[in-house]
Design a protein around this nucleic acid. Sequence first.
DNA 1: AGCCAGGCAGAGA
DNA 2: TCTCTGCATGGC
Length: 306
Amino acid sequence: MTRAAGWWLRLHGPEYNLAATLDSGQAFRWKQMAGGWEGVVGRRWVRLEPREDGGVDARTAEDPGDGAWLREYLGWEDDVEAIHRAFPTGDACLREAVAACRGLHLLRQDPWECLASFILSSTKQIVQIRRIVEELCVRYGEEVRAPGACGMVKAFPSALRLARLGEPELRACGMGFRARYLGATARRVASGAIDLAELRRQPLAEARRRLIELPGVGPKIADCVLLFSCGFREAFPVDVWILRVVRELYFEGREVRPREVEAFIESHFGPEGGYAQQYLFHWRRLRAGRVASAGGIRAGSGRDGV
DNA sequence: AGCCAGGCAGAGA
DNA sequence: TCTCTGCATGGC
């Protein structure tokens, strides 16, 4: 339906958790504003508001059509109850994590935006990744129609656009040594040396190999792209938070080697491991008070309290 | 003030 | 194959 200020779309479904989904380190551009979340999906500005019944109201600046693009992006059709049933039985730790962020969905993002964002993520805190990505968009993204005084926001800049920039222009966004990796990978994507849209149609191992060939992309970032944009739900990115939480929950806090942790992960979590990973990651960060949208449930000073 | 951050690449063993 | 180190920048 349409109104003077734009278009509305109503998504019906049980218990979709916008805060947990949009503020769990999968995507970096969503802003919580006046009880809703505002961001850009592809070339569309979107405002999402949670509904009492668990559904979501979406406001757009232009005709959203049937909204299939938004349902796709939000992972709306993912049957999370079935996914929970696929988790290892008897894993009480995982059940607690699921309970703490019920309604969290994995997103299906644009592969280029996801890849570029995670190249910028290495040894950066999420708050800082947000700032760098925002700066990159403000400087080099194309305008997208939006409500408000300004009337527009910026899309995520294309690979071609970034490929044509020099390293100093990228560094100006505050990304430091990652500028060389982002520029080099942008050139590989822009030249057609790799087809990101094709990855989802390849076997996971093959897609992963292709991604790791890119400058600045190793196993962790490859897994993020596979999980957050290609729909490979068995992909399991292992970062410092996952290392920490898996050691705490399954190794009594012992400083076991990453190799050993990865072997455990591979044998334990199964085909929906990617979802399990996201629950554990977000739950652990909630507990550490590192999630802005958590508001009232912040734990103490924000330092890690075991 | 000093440690750490959704890691990766290159060097050397 | 593995371990170690440098890398830019800024939050806490």
